[in-house]
């Protein structure tokens, strides 16, 4: 077991290392930007998977945390001077607000059936979108606003995009390993048990509510941080961060990549972001490609029908089966030898 964990950790680290090297071979602006999007949405989708994949909680308004993060850091950098202190304050405010809102949403609805959480988050997300549109003096309404980032030290300033790329990559890797530890901790195991059979968890003597609230808060904080990175990478915040599309993207990334696996949402983010990019550029060929959301809708339906465990989930199941077959074969051999 421990060996297996170590092996997968090495694989992940090797992939991360390759991603570190990548910009030295391909440093076009659009490509770096696309990869940064993959990293930020990878983080965001992981946070979504904590709820959906690990605990079985459905959220229809996850974009709200993303938006809270983006607006917090944007507004603070816009209002205060563009210094590292402001950036840090922005990140802290984002984390606090994200945590607070998810705590409130959790306390209010997680005692009830799951769809109440889905509905409340949807309503709250719409409310935040409304605030972002109407509170023009702070949010600049639906035009959004650009803001300045603090200057990077020395030569890094000349390679700003690569620096942001590296920062987002490192953050994604750290969050990935952090969340992996969380999901493989005793607490993480209880979350999965809650997803599987709430009533049984109770008869084992665990209270459900605290776990749901804890994971809701962690998910909210992580999603909010993804929003921070997104805003930093494009140096702009607009109301689109609160849009339902953002939640749908996270849902799609998680489902295509593999529900209940952390690496799945990252792979899903990669697929969706690159598909976005290439499909939109096919718009000249046929207008349908501009309406990529239609295509994704079809992909989504097909994935749910034929590929419900997602990419990573399917691979894992195959590996598990193979391992089992090997064990059984060994046992049969041993039985034969014995007889």
């Amino acid at each position: 077991m421990i060996k297996k964990i170590q092996r997968s950790t090495w694989i992940y680290l090797a992939v991360a290392f390759l991603l570190v090297l990548l910009p030295f071979f391909k440093d076009e602006r659009w490509f770096l930007f696309l990869m940064i999007q993959v990293f930020t949405f990878g983080i965001f989708a992981m946070s979504y998977d904590l709820l959906l994949g690990y605990t079985g909680i459905i959220s229809f308004g996850h974009a709200m945390f993303f938006g809270i993060g983006a607006y917090s850091v944007g507004i603070i950098l816009d209002r205060m001077e563009a210094s590292y202190t402001s950036l840090l304050i922005g990140i802290l405010v984002a984390a606090l607000l994200g945590g607070l809102v998810s705590f409130i949403a959790g306390i209010l609805t997680l005692k009830l059936k799951n769809h109440f959480y889905a509905m409340l988050t949807l309503a709250l997300a719409s409310m935040f979108l409304f605030i972002a549109e109407k509170w023009r003096s702070v949010t600049h309404g639906s035009d959004g606003f650009t803001f300045r980032l603090p200057e990077l030290p020395g030569p890094l300033e000349d390679h700003r995009n690569i620096t942001i790329y590296m920062f987002c990559l490192v953050m994604m890797v750290l969050i990935f390993f952090g969340l992996r530890r969380l999901t493989e901790s005793p607490l993480g195991k209880i979350l999965v048990a809650i997803r599987e059979n709430e009533g049984r968890v109770e008869s084992l003597g665990f209270r459900i509510m605290p776990y749901k609230v804890i994971i809701s808060v962690i998910s909210g904080v992580v999603a909010s941080f993804a929003g921070v990175l997104y805003a930093i990478s494009i140096r702009f915040v607009g109301t689109n961060v609160f849009a339902i599309d953002v939640t749908l993207d996270a849902l799609l990334m998680t489902i295509i990549g593999g529900v209940g696996t952390l690496v799945g949402p990252i792979i899903g983010a990669g697929i969706i972001e690159f598909a976005h990019h290439y499909l939109s550029s096919l718009a000249d060929v046929h207008w349908i490609f501009e309406r990529w959301i239609i295509l994704f809708g079809i992909v989504y339906i097909l994935a749910v029908i034929f590929f419900p465990a997602g990419i990573v989930g399917t691979i894992k199941a195959k590996l598990h089966k193979r391992k089992h077959r090997k064990i059984e074969a060994k046992q049969q051999n041993a039985d034969k030898m014995a007889s």
Binding site: S185, P186, K189, I214
Partner: peptide, 14 residues
């Protein structure tokens, strides 16, 4: 795990 009262440990590997 329930019997041994390991309920909110989230930093250690199981």
């Amino acid at each position: 795990q329930s019997r041994e009262n390991v309920r909110f440990q989230m930093f250690r590997h199981f």
